[in-house]
Design a protein around this nucleic acid. Structure first.
Length: 540
RNA sequence: GUCCUCGUAGCAUAGUGGAUAAUGCAACUGCCUUCUAAGCAGUAGAUCGCAGGUUCGAAUCCUGCCGAGGACGCCA
């Protein structure tokens, strides 16, 4: 709906340019004003163009308004007003409105989807927790954000691959440290749970020829747990579990990328180690890629470079990495690496901020290496998957969220997800009744002019906002807007429900019209929740 | 010390430079013999951390300060 409005404005601007050499801004916003007196949509194109055109914005708006009305053959607009400093306020016609809602009903579970992604291939790397422990509350941010983002991008016609990078390289310090712990020679990553795992595979460990192999065995065991939780508890299905050891070391890709960088003259020796000159590519400093130890073992960076080179070689149009806050220092380095390969602007990196814990008024920091750890599994078991997902998805990933363990249970009872799900269940119940009474909606069409109550129109308009929300997220990555949208939609529905009787009106055409509106609402809630990985129950 | 993110009502959070700052929880007042009260209607509650600047217009952009968290390893 918004795109139609935008297109007609753009056409009008183009006409004006051809006719009168009028050159307004084509970069403007179309918004839904909060105040309904300001129309269904408003555009600030005249305000934006005022400066370059050196004209009064209201005069510009007047010119644009005339042109739009003259080309509006479809009758999209009821009227266009000029208000304030020079806003163009658009009021949609009933026929356009009704037509849009009928299209929405027609599309069913495809309502909101589109092909703007044009089958572009996107690789999204997320969670990528180290196989040295459990998933904790902090991982939940990247997990749910990443999963919902992938769903949305697929919905819009992108070809999305979900990938989990497994840092299981035997050459890495963390696997060797893990191995030491496994063989009783160290304390790293030691927890009760790890101790159980070591006990479980003690026969295998006996045959391990060194720490690296012991670590690798234990990591494999831990990864199985992580996989199980991700797939079965969090309900996230990855396309690839990309093993650093198998895909990068065993295939010699790490060696190859080292040779490649060396041939480019980017590697030099200093203090017994080998460095890569990333500062030439706008990183803040050069980084070590081979340590000064006897084996000249690689740091995390070298395989990571090989990994990103591999991603590029797999032919993706866009790469998205979702990392925890502790990786923020790594962002510049990775972007520098992309420049070396000539793929700048193809990689977007999102940093999820920390989750802090509030318990009896005190704050605990969540860190992988120290302090109190609360596992994600615990949370999901405690509050349920739907409330957990909704709770995380309501918040933008770059605010540090505070989590109150004591309120975890309470959070689950008061979780806004139920407000949304309840709306869906209520509609389902109306349809059960309608079915009993023998209503048939086949060949019925929604007609907004039959909506005499304000609540009906507001609900219909909110439903039609859904495709706009989803489309915006694919550009702005503000996934939290989807959760907030479902709340708004549910609010409009509950309000409608209380003021408008759906069944049993004197005039049966009102019943049918309201049933159609309810049907569109139900489908929209279901589609939106499904993108978030949240269920839409038929009854509660 | 340098760099990154954040600071919005009692709490948790929305808010693509636009019009009267929004939602949930908590508080207060009403509303169930009719489709689910896990709901609705209403009231109260915000110097958008502080101070400057840019702009026709700033919660939003810039600078400085204060506060919170994170990163500054040859850990990943």
């Amino acid at each position: 709906m918004r795109n139609k409005v935008k297109n007609i404005i753009l056409t009008a601007l183009q006409n004006l340019q051809e006719k009168e050499g009028f050159l307004p801004f084509s970069d403007f916003d179309i918004k839904r004003p909060e105040n309904e007196e300001h129309g269904d949509y408003s555009a600030n194109v005249a305000l934006k163009s005022a400066k370059s055109l050196k004209q009064n914005p209201r005069d510009i708006a007047e010119t644009i308004k005339k042109e739009i009305l003259s080309i509006d053959k479809e009758g999209i607009f009821e009227k266009i007003e000029i208000a304030g400093a020079g806003f163009l306020n658009f009021f949609l016609s009933d026929s356009f409105f009704s037509k849009s809602l009928n299209e929405a009903i027609e599309k069913k579970d495809k309502f909101g989807s589109s092909n703007i992604g044009n089958k572009k291939r996107v690789l999204v790397e997320f969670i990528s927790a180290n196989p040295t422990g459990e998933l904790h509350l902090g991982h939940g941010r990247g997990a749910f954000f990443g999963d919902a983002l992938c769903n949305i991008l697929s919905f819009l016609g992108y070809e999305v691959t979900r990938e989990f990078y497994v840092n299981d390289a035997k050459a890495s310090t963390q696997i060797q440290e893990l191995g030491k712990t496994a063989l009783g020679k160290g304390e790293a990553y030691k927890t009760e749970k790890l101790q159980e795992k070591i006990e479980k595979i003690k026969d295998l460990l006996k045959d391990a020829k060194d720490e690296a192999e012991a670590g690798s065995l234990l990591a494999k065991e831990l990864l199985e747990d992580i996989k199980d939780i991700v797939e079965n508890k969090l309900n996230i299905k990855f396309d690839n579990w990309f093993s650093e050891q198998k895909e990068l070391y065993d295939t010699k890709k790490v060696d190859q990328v080292y040779e490649f960088l060396k041939s480019k003259g980017l590697i030099y020796e200093k203090e017994g180690a080998e460095w890569i000159a990333l500062s030439r590519y706008e990183d803040s400093e050069d980084r070590v890629i081979l340590r000064s130890d006897q084996k000249k073992s690689p740091t995390y960076l070298l395989p990571d470079i090989a990994y990103h080179k591999n991603k590029i070689e797999r032919g993706y149009d866009k790469l998205i990495n979702i990392w925890g806050a502790d990786h923020q220092g790594h962002v510049k380095s990775m972007q520098a690496v992309m420049k070396i390969f000539g793929f700048e602007n193809k990689l977007d990196i999102f940093i999820t901020q920390m989750v802090s814990l509030k318990e009896e008024g005190e704050k605990f920091k969540l860190s992988k290496r120290k302090g109190k750890i609360v596992s994600l599994k615990w949370l999901v078991d405690e509050v349920g998957l739907d409330p957990a997902r909704f709770f995380y998805l309501l918040k933008s990933i770059d605010t540090q969220m505070e989590f109150d363990i004591c309120l975890a249970k309470e959070q689950s009872d008061k979780n806004p997800v139920f407000y949304v799900q309840y709306a869906h269940a209520r509609i389902a119940s109306i349809f059960k009744k309608a079915e009993k009474e023998g209503f048939s909606l086949s060949e019925s069409l929604f007609d907004i002019s039959l909506c005499k109550k304000e609540e009906e129109r507001k609900l219909a308009f909110e439903v039609l906002k859904f495709p706009e929300i989803v489309e915006d997220i694919s550009f702005l990555y503000n996934v939290q807007n989807l959760a907030h949208y479902t709340l708004n939609l549910a609010k409009k529905f509950h309000s409608f429900y209380n003021s408008c009787r759906v069944l049993g009106n004197e005039d049966e055409s009102i019943d049918k019209n309201r049933l159609l509106l309810a049907k569109a609402t139900k489908q929209t809630i279901k589609n939106a929740l499904s993108l978030m990985g949240v269920s839409a129950p038929e009854k509660m």
